[in-house]
């Protein structure tokens, strides 16, 4: 067992990540995407909604690095701004699905009586194809950024719930949980302080994957026209619009496409690395 200086082993996890070239690459890409999205106001060269019909469908050039779209809007600026929406939606989906999933998973894993019904509910939700369930939910709720987050949050909650339930089942049987029960620690405290804390690693790993999937799903929903409203630039809507000009002006969809691939792939690589670093330790300590 490697020496860890803190219980979560943050130091060793960071060092582990930095020793893996793919993870380092993924981190760099993600940091770049986040910085661009956060600083869009200053970093985007043009106002993303500024029309310039005279400059429509221009190929990438020094003036417009990613070219312009059918209304002469700068694709680079729109890609940067769209990143903000895509990342915000992805992050919010992680929070919503973690909130629902952790609650369901903890209940199912700790209370034997609830395990049957809750697990069947989780299985039933997982039986729906992600995108179809999301489309159905958005259709029922009405298209808006908030509803997309809610729908995707519900769609991905079972994934978080399954991981949390499985880990809770293991931790519940550990001696220190039994010891806490025997010394009169209330159930609510056992759940939050003694079990939830020990779930940080699997939840982090799962959160990374849900983040990646949520970005992809949001793009898919926007592409299909059931996502965030079409006049808000997201990577999905940009691809949907650019599709009509695929032959004359492919760059309109290339660049948001590349942005999606880069972000999602980086998140997946990071998630894999985190799983390698965090999960085996959980297995070792249990």
């Amino acid at each position: 067992m490697t020496a860890v200086t803190s219980p979560l082993g943050e130091d060793s996890v960071w060092r582990g990540l930095l020793r893996r070239p793919p993870a380092v690459g993924a981190l760099i890409v993600l940091i770049a995407v986040v910085v661009l999205a956060a600083g869009a106001d200053f970093l985007a060269p043009y106002v993303p909604s500024k029309l310039s019909i005279a400059n429509r469908l221009q190929a990438p050039s020094a003036l417009h690095l990613f070219g312009t779209d059918e209304f002469g809007r700068d694709v680079l600026s729109r890609t940067i701004w769209a990143g903000r929406i895509s990342l915000a939606v992805g992050g919010a989906v992680v929070l919503v699905s973690a909130l629902i999933g952790v609650t369901l998973g903890l209940m199912a894993g700790y209370f034997r009586r609830l395990d049957g019904p809750l697990s069947r509910l989780i299985d039933a939700m997982m039986a729906f194809p992600d995108i179809l369930l999301a489309i159905a939910l958005v259709a029922a709720l009405g298209p808006s950024a908030f509803n997309v987050v809610l729908a995707l949050g519900i769609v991905y909650a079972p994934r978080a719930a399954r991981v949390v339930r499985a880990s809770t089942l293991v931790i519940r049987e550990l001696a220190y949980v039994e010891a806490a029960q025997a010394l009169g620690v209330p159930t609510a405290v056992i759940l939050t302080r003694h079990i939830l804390r020990n779930l940080a690693s699997p939840i982090t790993v799962q959160g990374t994957f849900i983040f990646a999937n949520a970005i992809l799903a949001e793009a898919g929903l926007s592409f299909l026209g059931v996502g965030v409203s079409p006049d808000v630039p997201t990577w999905g809507t940009m691809i949907a619009m650019g599709r009509q000009f695929m032959d004359q002006a492919g760059w309109i969809m290339w660049f948001p496409g590349i942005a999606i691939v880069a972000s999602v792939m980086s998140l997946q690589v990071l998630g894999d690395a985190l799983r390698d670093l965090l999960d085996p330790r959980l297995a070792r300590t249990t």
Binding site: P7, Y176, A182, L183, V185, P186, H194
Partner: peptide, 25 residues
């Protein structure tokens, strides 16, 4: 009812000191 018994009245210690403590606290 046991809430007032476990701890202040009857406490219990176990066999495995290696796993009877929460590793994160």
């Amino acid at each position: 009812g046991f809430r007032h018994i476990r701890g202040p009245e009857i406490a219990m210690i176990f066999q495995e000191p290696m796993t009877s403590l929460n590793p994160l606290m």
